[in-house]
């Protein structure tokens, strides 16, 4: 039997996809923002700390990195409320999970970045009288940034794609929107023919924005 392409039902429901994409982007931005705070904070703590604290940070990183995201999402949404008296909706739960997930990957990136800043450069900042915080903001952070921007870009795009996992909690992001249309119209080919380029274009948009940043910071 021939399958007749019919995009009409997709366009009728395109709002679901538009709002879905917007929510996906929002989820990614918030998770990345929190993840950056966690990642940078833990990278600094790791650098300044003794063995036991370092071991704790490594434990967090290793745990998150070795458990599938889908499992983590279930763990936080279904698992934690059965143990602790806490209630949250899909969006909050997913955001918490993705932020922790992002944090674990970003710790590693920031740690490598901080280690790549030559000691002499930090000393040069101290030598002109910068305080530790000033030295961090004006010397280490920008120097590190140039080194890590490529891996940062990759991670940010991955995190954006990972927002699709939120569909399992019925969070109405882009993939969920696609599933909804699929379920209600049975136009399976058409819906994914529209959604895939949406992910692609948004992903490239993120990469492009970071490339611009990269060019500003990168020095050949």
């Amino acid at each position: 039997m021939l399958y007749h392409l019919n995009f009409g039902l997709i366009w009728k429901n395109i709002g679901k996809l538009e709002w879905g994409l917007l929510l996906s982007l929002e989820l990614a931005v918030v998770a990345i923002a929190i993840g950056v705070v966690i990642g940078l904070g833990l990278a600094l703590i790791y650098e300044q700390s003794s063995r036991p604290v370092r071991a704790l940070v490594s434990l967090y990183v290793e745990f998150i990195r070795n458990v599938p995201l889908l499992l983590l999402v279930y763990l936080v949404f279904y698992g934690i409320p059965t143990v602790v008296d806490i209630r949250y909706d899909g969006v909050t739960s997913f955001l918490a999970t993705l932020s922790l997930y992002a944090g674990a990957y970003l710790v590693e990136i920031f740690r490598a970045g901080l280690a790549a800043v030559p000691r002499g450069l930090t000393d040069a900042g101290r030598a002109i009288g910068l305080t530790p915080l000033q030295g961090f903001i004006h010397v280490r952070l920008p120097t590190m940034f140039r080194v890590i921007l490529p891996s940062l870009s990759n991670t940010f795009v991955s995190l954006f794609k990972d927002t699709s996992v939120a569909s399992v909690l019925a969070v109405p992001e882009l993939t969920y929107g696609a599933q909804w249309i699929n379920f209600n119209t049975f136009r399976i080919v058409e819906v994914y023919a529209v959604v895939t380029p949406m992910y692609l274009i948004a992903g490239y948009g993120i990469l492009g924005a970071l490339r611009l940043l990269e060019r500003r910071f990168a020095v050949s």
């Binding site: 002499g120 450069l121 000393d123 040069a124 120097t143």
Partner: peptide, 15 residues
């Protein structure tokens, strides 16, 4: 800040 230091490998802030 009261003593200036110039380094063998310059260590200018690259950015």
């Amino acid at each position: 800040a009261e003593t200036g230091m110039v380094f063998q490998l310059f260590y200018l802030f690259p950015h």
